[in-house]
Design a protein around this nucleic acid. Structure first.
Lengths: 333, 333
DNA sequence: TTGTACGCGTTATCAG
DNA sequence: CTGATAACGCGTACAA
């Protein structure tokens, strides 16, 4: 076995209590004994057992992050933001992904119990019912980018709706009216919000123009397929629900000999790194992902250690329009 | 407080032992009582405390991953691979990053003690001395992409050296001999290995040709600067130690009116997603990052639960040459 | 089959 | 200032 606090106590000829006090920097211990204890502890390479400590302390100095997946830049950035903010506060990060069923998600969640002080939860299954069933009432939780919650828990999400509205407004401002939309997966919360924003803004900015919606699933292939349809139907602009589909669409337009934005304007959503390297570079909505992670963790810390008058928050983080050549005034011919 | 096993026992009118047995699926419990216990546990939403359980079980069902950073696709993919393999085995993942000092890294490491069954360690500080000091001898550990180890621990790393050799061989095979190299940060292990491979292969494939090395730091800007130098010195080909620098270099060549690969060939390392979207698409070395994560976890599992005759392993994962237009036969004029 | 009692490693409480 | 000792929540010998 590993060396425990008892071994240190025995070797130093003191009680375990004194060892604990010395190592935790309490002041009620003689400098002499403290020094001896520290020396012996170092010599024995004693390292406290986190599980045992947190059992009595009721603190783990760890936050859990339950994500639907770990694929791609979004989660990478999110984790980075969370980790950044966590490190600043001396907290550790327990990550778990759960592609699958609600049960699987619930199991992952239960496995975190007793190992985390709070939970960052991002899951398509995280509806009201699920939360009531699988979430211990005492566990501070922040919902990320899934659901605006019911006030029980804090939540934070990307303003997908507002971002889509802004993008349509921008395109309309460039003079385009027949603006098509390439949608994301129907079950995807973010995709639905972006679609909702598109519809709403179209009704307001381009009255009388029928919304033109191509089905998609966030993949490059789907974007290409939609692009082929656009080649036939010739909307003035295409707004893809994410950048990967915009890339696929761009390829289809190029293949058909269409020039962007001269013959057809194009816009995306996400501002993935590639967006600025395309020809022409892609107009898109930037999501401050890492920042969302940071804010989420901050809200969680607040929920863990509530100040005097604490109330759950429901932030929504705005996206940022990045205008590039693919949408700029292409119709001036 | 949260509901504990005692509460369930009390409500069911049995002892905590029976509750424990029933919930853990032991067979020495009457179907009747088991059912009653299960029902009450569900009703009370009882969920076992992980810290307490692992204290007695001596298993946490969790592996730790200590990484130097979380920025970029490399760590994203690595974590994904680790998580994938971990989930398959019902293991959870405790992530920690530590940009900083050896002390900081050691602290992060100690904080994991008692919370993990084993450790995936990737750190520039992970030399022999550090490991002996900060690593509990009993904690199974796999070194990732840092150091080939001394046989004490298993290790796994990318074959950066072999990849660089292969790339130079490819370029030489295309007829290029004056091949320049854009290096990475001097203190970076991978950058040094790639440089070593370049030097070695140049001496063998292009005897008599003086190696031409531009300083770099893995950033696009550094690549651009090196590209400007290349425009002046006109090597036949430029091999950048990573793709981001190749991108910067490509921009510089384009700005100077040089055609790639007609006037100068170009190659990178990493195969980031953008590589295939550049014009011309970039020849580069693909690193199977997620696969490395999976293998690392598998080796760790082996170290945690050693079979009959267990010996530490020291794998090195090969990279894969991806030939694209930027290096292909550009000199056929 | 079931209950009692102990131990996991640590911190907190209370005497001394 | 120090040392017993009781918790923390759980699993498991052992006895019944």
């Amino acid at each position: 076995m590993s060396v425990t606090i008892k071994d240190v106590a025995k070797a130093a000829g003191v009680s375990v209590a004194s060892v604990s006090r010395a190592l935790n920097g309490h002041d009620n211990v003689t400098p002499a004994t403290r020094e001896r204890i520290m020396a012996i502890a170092a010599e024995l390479r004693y390292m406290p057992n986190g599980a045992a400590r947190s059992l009595i302390t009721r603190r783990t100095q760890t936050v859990g992050a339950l994500l639907p997946d770990l694929h791609g830049a979004f989660f990478s950035e999110l984790i980075r933001g969370i980790d950044l903010a966590a490190r600043q506060r001396g907290l550790h990060l327990l990550v778990s992904s759960s592609h699958g069923s609600p049960d699987e998600t619930g199991a992952a969640l239960r496995a975190m119990l007793g190992r985390v002080d709070g939970l960052l939860l991002m899951s398509p299954h995280a509806d009201d019912d699920f939360l009531a069933t699988h979430l211990p009432p005492a566990l501070p939780t922040v919902l990320v980018n899934t659901w605006l919650g019911n006030g029980q828990h804090s939540s934070i999400s990307v303003d997908n709706h507002g971002g889509a509205v802004t993008m349509v407004e921008h395109l309309a401002g460039q003079g385009y009216t027949r603006i098509a939309f390439i949608g994301g997966p129907a079950h995807n919360y973010e995709a639905r919000e972006r679609l909702r924003g598109y519809r709403e803004a179209m009704a307001r900015c381009c009255p009388g123009v029928e919304p033109l919606i191509y089905a998609g699933d966030f993949t490059e292939e789907a974007g290409h397929a939609a692009g082929c349809l656009a080649v036939a139907q010739r909307p003035q602009a295409v707004f893809a629900a994410n950048d990967m589909m915009a890339i696929g669409c761009l390829a289809a337009l190029h293949e058909a000999g269409l020039r962007v934005p001269h013959d057809m304007a194009l816009a995306g959503f996400d501002d993935i790194p590639m967006a600025r390297y395309l020809t022409p570079p892609l107009t898109t909505m930037r999501i401050p992902i890492a920042q969302i992670g940071e804010q989420a963790l901050q809200d969680l810390v607040l929920a863990i250690d509530p100040p005097e008058h604490f109330a759950t928050s429901a932030r929504t983080t705005p996206t940022e329009l990045v205008v590039r050549a693919s949408s700029e005034a292409g119709r001036a011919d």
